[in-house]
């Protein structure tokens, strides 16, 4: 698996897109710091961007990489390597390289701005950790989509729909149902609703840490009341882990019986 990981990583290191992604975050980091002039405020703005964009880039990049490397995959399949290792190696290759782009792209401007001397350093690391979680989750979901669809256009379509659903539509439905059923106790419903969407989960996690009640919204408040800040954070991190493990398990299972 390490050899597959090595070559996927090597391949991505030469891909233009890794650098575009990196430069985008670099520019974003500098612009936000320039406009906000305040590390903690910049972190909040950054959170809003990361939570929406990282999943989008993860899904699109994951699907694109899979379809682009079909030849490489076929070449590897004829070699004495386990299927599981081929796909896990490629998955880790993209996820790690995207996470690194995020880490460096955002880390560099914040470092220059004096992050290390600031009190916001833990908030910042939590933000990057969440970004990495979201990358691993959405690349795994992207692999599930592309392994199940030979047709590239369909695969891309489903990937964009998935992102749109989790990033936008889900919240809409969620809020609507909170309004429609406002006469009923909704604590548990909204807790479960949050756990079922990795994007909401990440948002809650960061807001719990930042402790900004104004931004927390209903679900954040319920989360905090129900679990308290520290156990709330532990539960959301565990749930994010599960959000990686299940999709990875699902695509490995699918890869075992797929024909090439």
């Amino acid at each position: 698996m390490l050899k597959v990981l090595k070559y996927s990583f090597y391949d991505l290191g030469r891909s233009r897109w890794s650098y575009i992604y990196f430069c985008f975050y670099l520019a974003l980091g500098f612009v936000l710091l320039f406009l906000n002039n305040d590390l903690s405020k910049a972190i909040i703005t950054l959170m809003n961007v990361i939570i929406v964009l990282v999943p989008l880039i993860g899904t699109i990049f994951g699907v694109m990489y899979y379809y682009n490397s079909v030849e490489f995959t076929e070449l590897l399949l004829a070699q004495p390597i386990k299927r599981r290792n081929i796909f896990l190696g490629q998955y880790l290759g993209i996820s790690i390289s995207l996470s690194l782009s995020l880490l460096l792209g955002i880390g560099i401007p914040f470092m220059i701005y004096g992050l290390l001397k600031s009190a916001a350093i833990f908030d910042f690391f939590l933000l990057l950790l969440t970004g990495a979680f979201l990358t691993f989750i959405f690349v795994a979901l992207a692999f599930n989509i592309s392994l199940r669809n030979e047709n590239k256009i369909k695969g891309f379509g489903y990937a964009v729909l998935l992102w749109l659903f989790l990033a936008v539509i889900y919240d809409g439905i969620f809020l609507m149902s909170l309004m429609v059923f406002e006469d009923y106790p909704l604590d548990k419903f909204s807790l479960i609703g949050t756990l079922l969407n990795p994007i909401d989960l990440s948002r809650t996690l960061i807001l719990l840490k930042l402790d900004i009640s104004a931004l927390m919204g209903y679900t954040g408040a319920v989360f905090k009341n129900f679990f308290g800040t520290s156990s709330g954070m532990i539960i959301s991190i565990v749930s994010l882990f599960l959000w990686i493990i299940f999709p990875v398990f699902a695509f490995v299972l699918k890869a075992r019986t797929k024909d090439f």
């Binding site: 391949d11 030469r14 891909s15 490397s69 079909v70 030849e71 490489f72 076929e74 070449l75 004829a78 070699q79 004495p80 390597i81 386990k82 299927r83």
Partner: peptide, 19 residues
């Protein structure tokens, strides 16, 4: 997968990683 160590394979359509 180790049995594939015994096999050399020449695929029909030579598709290689392009870059």
């Amino acid at each position: 997968s180790s049995y594939r160590n015994q096999i050399d394979y020449l695929p029909q359509i030579a598709n290689f990683p392009a870059n």
